[in-house]
């Protein structure tokens, strides 16, 4: 449009000068969040270093870090991380598949929703950890019961997310599909799927968070390897540095896997016109 040109020129200059501080802000803002924990950690390190505290129950960061390095050297760390990742991955996969399928069915087909949803909601009301004894009885103490527990934890947020997202798809957009006479499958593929994708990604991330929560529970109950085992081992043998090391690794892995989902979904969500987008979040 030729009429756009002068307007564009007018606005481009202030926009450019505004870009410089915003670039600075982009790096500075995350740093703000690190400030508090960093200060606390360094402060504690300093206190222990000066000998004002022995740091036996609350080991300073350097000792936690040394523990991680030790574990890594012996190859223990990789073994534990692999065991935990494998459980979370498997449980997450099962939970996501089941949650997506049932959620989609309940969302799309109201008869199924009437049949299914009350039961699912009732099950959801049970604290998932209450299943643990039963799972152990049914499935044994080994991998299966752990994976199932994680899958159960992942299932509910994904199910709810998918069903809810389908139910609130804008009728106006569905009507566009209807006017072009889309068949059922085409309607799902071309309208419903893209419309629910943003909410779906959120539910996956919530599900993954619960998956990490439940893997700790599962491994605390009985395991010979895994990060949860490191926690328990640290408690029983009085090694707080090992507990903190495991916690730090949990935090890193949790953040990392969450970030992976975000990265994987980003190309499909570029179209979004949302509040969060404009904030560079």
């Amino acid at each position: 449009m030729s009429s756009d040109a002068p307007v564009l020129q007018q606005t481009s200059e202030p926009a450019e000068s505004a870009a410089a501080p915003s670039r600075l802000a982009r790096y500075a803002r995350p740093m703000l969040g690190v400030l508090l924990p960093l200060t606390l950690a360094l402060g504690w390190e300093f206190l222990v270093w000066r000998g004002w505290s022995n740091g036996r129950l609350v080991p300073p960061p350097s000792r936690v870090f040394a523990t991680i390095v030790d574990l890594a050297r012996s190859g223990e760390l990789v073994r534990h991380i692999a065991a935990t990742l494998w459980r979370v991955g498997l449980g997450f996969a099962f939970g996501v598949v089941a949650g997506t399928l049932l959620g989609a069915i309940s969302g799309y087909w109201s008869l199924a929703r009437r049949l299914l949803d009350p039961t699912v909601q009732a099950l959801r009301a049970i604290p998932s950890l209450a299943w643990v004894p039963l799972f152990i009885l049914w499935l044994g103490i080994f991998e299966t019961s752990k994976v199932v527990l994680i899958a159960v934890g992942v299932f509910f947020p994904v199910y709810l997310g998918v069903m809810g997202a389908i139910l609130i798809v804008d009728r106006k957009i569905v009507e566009v599909g209807r006017t072009f006479r889309l068949s059922g499958p085409a309607m799902i593929r071309r309208i419903l799927l893209p419309a629910v994708l943003p909410a779906y990604v959120v539910s996956l991330r919530v599900g993954l968070g619960l998956g990490w929560m439940f893997v700790v529970a599962a491994e605390l109950i009985g395991a010979s390897e895994g990060l949860g085992y490191l926690l328990l081992d640290g408690q029983q043998l009085g090694k707080p540095a090992q507990i903190l090391a495991a916690i730090v690794i949990f935090a890193i892995l949790g953040k990392l896997t969450d970030w992976l989902i975000e990265i994987a979904a980003a190309p499909f969500l570029r179209w979004q016109d949302a509040f969060g987008r404009t904030r560079g979040a």
């Binding site: 106006k172 957009i173 009507e175 006017t179 006479r181 419309a195």
Partner: peptide, 18 residues
């Protein structure tokens, strides 16, 4: 039901945002 020979334009554009 919607027919191939009939098109409709609504008050809002109703473009598919994706």
């Amino acid at each position: 039901s919607p027919h191939a020979k009939i098109g409709i334009i609504f008050q809002e554009p109703r473009l598919l945002p994706w």
